[in-house]
Amino acid sequence: MIKDQYLVDRLKQNDLKTLDKLYLTYKKEFFLFARKLNAQEKDVADIYQETIISLYENVQNGKLEKLTSTLKSYVFAIGKFKIYKHLGKTKKLYHEGQIIHISEEMQLFETEALEEQRQILRKSWKQLGSKCQQILELFYYKGMTLDEIQEVLQYASKDVLKSQKHRCMAQLRKLARERYEKA
């Protein structure tokens, strides 16, 4: 556990060598685990890579700071959700053809979407002004609260920030819609 926490701290410091090492350490066992859950062999490599990337993300956005289990069981819990998602065995929310997968164990929502739609959104994101990118990045990627962002970016009030964030989201959606209609 102490060693595991040390590894998490290394990841927090952007040490990608540690990520490589973890990736190779759990790989074999993860494949066995996935086989037991009846995941399709050809998809496991991809699922495993996504699992390790999620681990890294969770460390970066502060979702994982202090381990309460071993690092291995944490990784396998993420992996299990991804495998279940792949097999369609998760709890879900539906909305006009949109699907949100739920993991209560990991307290996580994950969407399902078409790759082309995602590409459009990614391209639109690059077009978005840097001020908007910054706000959305701090909120969605760094996991900062609105209060924290208000302080860092020195907004006059939380409400001003809130409506700015709202405008940014609307703008992003507009950019994506324009691209979508062109496509």
Binding site: F109, T111, R118, L121, Y140
Partner: peptide, 10 residues
Amino acid sequence: YNELEVKRAI
């Protein structure tokens, strides 16, 4: 849903 997709894009 939209927020989760934006997060994913970032």
